[in-house]
Structure formats: C-alpha cells, structure tokens
Simulated assay, not measured.
Amino acid sequence: MSSHPSTAWLELLDWRREASALYARVREELRRDPESAHHLWQTGRNILFKTHSQSPLDPQARAAFQELPCWPYDPALAFSARVEAVEPQERLSVPSSTGQEMPLVRFGRVTLPLGTLDVYWIDVYGGGMFLPFRDATSGQQSYGGGRYLLDTAKSADLGSTPSDITASGELVLDFNFAYHPSCFYDPRWSCPLAPPQNVLGVPVRAGERVS
C-alpha cells in the first residue's frame, strides 16, 4: 500500500473495481471466443500490474515490467464441472505466505480430467469461493505455493454454464486463466497457499508461469 493510509484504502478499492470490471468483460467474451477472452484477460492484467498503485509489484519492479508470462491458450485445459457436495463440510485453516492462518470451509469438490480438487469458501466477512491448486510445474515453471483458478472475493470468477449456477452447479474452470497470487511478486503480500489435497499430479502448462 502507499504511504498515506486513507489514500491506500481508496486505491485498493479502485483496484478491486478494475479487477471486477475486467472479469465481467472476460466472462462476456468467453461466451463468444475463449482465446480472445484470454488475450483480453492478459492485456487487462498487464495494464493493472504496470500502472496501478496497488499493483502487486513494487514501484521499481513496475518501472521495468513488460508483461506477465503465460503459456499459449490451450482449449484442452478448459472445463466445466459440477460441484459435488462433501459431507461433512470441513472448517480448516491453511497457512498463508507470511505464516498467518486463513480460515476456509471445504464445501465441495470438482472432478476434472486432470484430477479432483476441493472447493472452498473463505470463512471471513464477505467470504468468497476459492479454488487454489498446485501441479507438477509448481516450484519449477510456476510458483511453488500454487496458483489460483478461482477467487471470487477478488472477482476472479469465470462464471458458470449455464449462467444459473443453482440449476446446474457447473463452474467454468479454465486453467488458461490460472494466475499467481500477489505474494509471488512481493513477500509483503499475504496469500493463502494451496492445501496438500489440492495438488494435481500432472503438469498444467496453462495460465501464468514463472518466465
């Protein structure tokens, strides 16, 4: 955050608004052309990282920034999946990158061709659906702490198919939009890490990468 506290919170609010608007445009474009939606997402994130005061990058890194490295769009890594209920629902805490604990509720799972992932609700005020993962690229071609597929508290949400999720329970889970948490770019940020049960045994070469 910037040095003046009140200004910093307003800047953070603006970041959230800009991110929300970006994902709204991405969801709309995703219905027409997934590859175009992916380009829109990349372009929008690059602009925010380069120009916004609440960028995960510090000012020096922003000055040198060009673009976030991504694998080319791969339609074979785009899925829709029904959320299967898990009973009993489990409350747990996962460590963050700074050692703080993040309370989560494990309320469902999705079964994908790549493996099974648990789906969480962030158990704090406002909450949000949260789907982090690690895979065989983690720690080599992508961040060792994992990447995020969904984080609706931060507007990272690709929607559902069809749009009425209560009717279908199917989430759009496109790994081409997987992204690194802010702590990957600067240790001042505190980010929940992917828990051990959300590790895929295969490499997912889609979305953001290290370089």
Rank of each mutant, 00 (worst) to 15 (best):
Val124Leu: 12
His39Glu: 15
Gly169Asn: 11
Phe133His: 07
Ser55Gln: 07
Glu28Asn: 02
Thr116Ala: 12
Thr111Ile: 01
Thr43Lys: 14
Asp74Glu: 12
Gln141Cys: 00
Cys191Lys: 09
Asn176Leu: 05
Leu173Met: 06
Glu35Ile: 09
Phe79Val: 05
Asp58Phe: 01
Tyr143Gln: 01
Asp58Lys: 13
Gln60Ala: 15
Ser168Cys: 08
Asn198Ser: 07
Pro113Trp: 06
Val204Leu: 05
Met102Pro: 00
Leu92Pro: 04
Cys191Phe: 08
Gly146His: 10
Tyr120Ile: 01
Val94Met: 05
His39Pro: 00
Thr43Ala: 14
Thr161Ser: 13
Pro132Glu: 05
Arg62Lys: 14
Arg17Cys: 04
Gln66Pro: 01
Glu87Pro: 01
Pro113Ala: 05
Gly128Asp: 08
Leu10His: 13
Ser20Pro: 00
Ser80Cys: 13
Arg82Leu: 12
Ala81Cys: 08
Gly139Ala: 03
Glu11Gly: 12
Gly115Asn: 05
Asp164Gln: 10
Arg91Leu: 10
Met1Gly: 15
Ser168Ile: 03
Leu22Ala: 02
Asp33Gly: 02
Gln54Met: 15
Glu29Asp: 02
Arg45Lys: 12
Ser6Val: 12
Glu87Gln: 13
Leu48Ala: 11
Arg25His: 09
Leu112Ile: 02
Trp189Met: 04
Trp41Met: 05
Asp123Gln: 07
Ile47Phe: 10
Leu173Cys: 08
Val172His: 12
Leu30Gln: 00
Val110Thr: 00
Pro113Ile: 05
Tyr23Asp: 00
Ala178Met: 06
Leu117Tyr: 09
Pro72Val: 06
Leu149Trp: 13
Thr116Met: 04
Tyr23Met: 15
Arg16Trp: 08
Pro59Cys: 04
His4Asp: 14
Arg62Tyr: 09
Ala156Trp: 13
Ala37Gly: 03
Ser36Thr: 13
Trp121Lys: 02
Ile122Ser: 00
Pro75Trp: 09
Ser182Leu: 13
Gln140Arg: 12
Arg17Lys: 12
